[in-house]
Design a protein around this nucleic acid. Structure first.
Lengths: 129, 129
DNA sequence: CTGGATCCGGCACGATACTG
DNA sequence: CAGTATCGTGCCGGATCCAG
């Protein structure tokens, strides 16, 4: 059973001796990560920006389905988390370019591994839920 | 920049010629995957079950923070998606054991890659958002 | 022990209108 | 072009009670 697994780290099976000091915080880093990029658009944007830098409306048109509001919010959050860099070029029509930071690029690799899995097993899973 | 990346698939940059036939469906497999396991507990459960099979309350105690409702919902969904297998043993106190299907095991690998990334970069990212 | 049923608050998300 | 402001809604998710 444990023959071909890749030595899953026991980062989840931690025990919390103190039943959460103040309120409740990110239990484990994995949970925290998914709370940040596990929303509807974040990883989409990350993978897009992994191919090349994009401008705002360019992204908006490419993703097709995201609202301006959510695209802006997603980009802001990713920027705050240090995954995306925002560059403003003071041209006559103002242009803003978004790109991945080194941290974002490093995230791209495990993320695309997941993406590849999704593509592979898209048909084998239940299509119509 | 493209030296050490793992050849990111262009699964996202598809174009939808028809602006969604009926309602709206899973745009791309990646989005679809995250809509399924991108919730608060799914990948937690998958990673836990990747270590060994668990019984219900065993899982409930291990994850520490999940409610019965959400644990049940999560397990049901994962089962419907073919990632988790549910076995009922008709003992005197009824016992149910959950384990990963082969599909679930295959998902575990890219998932743990993401998990490792999260652990590595947990400190480098913004801790207090 | 393994859940199901119900109530309910918060927020993720979309649509629309407006701005510099 | 690149956003911001506001409103409305669905459903995610927790707490609690109930059941086989």
């Amino acid at each position: 059973m444990s023959g071909t697994n890749t030595d899953v780290p026991a980062v989840i099976a931690h025990e919390l001796p103190n039943p959460v000091p103040h309120d409740e915080l990110a239990a484990c880093p994995v949970t925290d990560l998914f709370r940040r990029i596990g929303d509807k658009w974040s990883m989409l944007v990350v993978i897009m920006l992994g191919k090349r830098p994009y401008r705002y409306n360019e992204l908006h048109r490419s993703i097709e389905g995201v609202s301006q509001r959510m695209l802006t919010r997603t980009l802001r959050t990713l920027e705050e988390d240090g995954l995306v860099r925002r560059e403003v070029f003071p041209s006559v029509p103002p242009s803003v370019e978004y790109s991945l930071t080194p941290l974002g690029v490093s995230l791209l690799e495990p993320l695309s591994a997941l993406a590849e899995w999704a593509v592979k097993n898209a048909t084998s899973a239940v299509p119509t839920r």
